[in-house]
Amino acid sequence: MLALDTQKEIAQLLSRYPIKRNALLPILHVVQKGNEGYLTPELLEEVAGICEVSQTHVEGVISFYTMYKLEKPGKFHLQVCTCVPCCLVGGEELLEHVEQQLDTHAGHTADDGVFSVEEVECLGACSYAPAVIINEDYHEQMNPEKLDRLMDELRTQGQAHA
């Protein structure tokens, strides 16, 4: 069962489109957000029912877009851009640095479950490269030191919440 808040949000989304299927992408976002950042087969089934599409359709859709996850990400999910402009000004080094710090590889969640890292293509912040997204926020013109500081803060914050 979806949380009441999620259901409300879904109803609101559905009201904005001529047909239910149109709301599929935003609904998947809402459901994913309501489930610690990932989707499960049961949730997909539920969404298929809501949007009146087949489960095949939903699975085809989530496998097409990069933002839908089937595995639980860290509490803070880092997307490090290594596309052209970021790469020109240190995006790759930044990614290596994060991987080293967390002793993990892009695409994995670090052991403590606080951070997960993903190497991504252009985030649309190229004039402010290198760019990193943490959860929903952009952090721009990053360098290893700035990122370390940020992550330290987040780690304390994460542990405080835990």
Binding site: C51, V53, F64, Y65, Y68
Partner: peptide
């Protein structure tokens, strides 16, 4: 209405964008 995409450059191509906003693969 603001409609969020979900991570696919190709959805910038206008007809892929339409498929995507219709709730399909782009």
């Amino acid at each position: 209405t603001v409609h969020p995409g979900a991570g696919a450059y190709i959805c910038g191509e206008e007809t892929a964008l339409l498929d995507s906003i219709e709730g399909k693969r782009g």
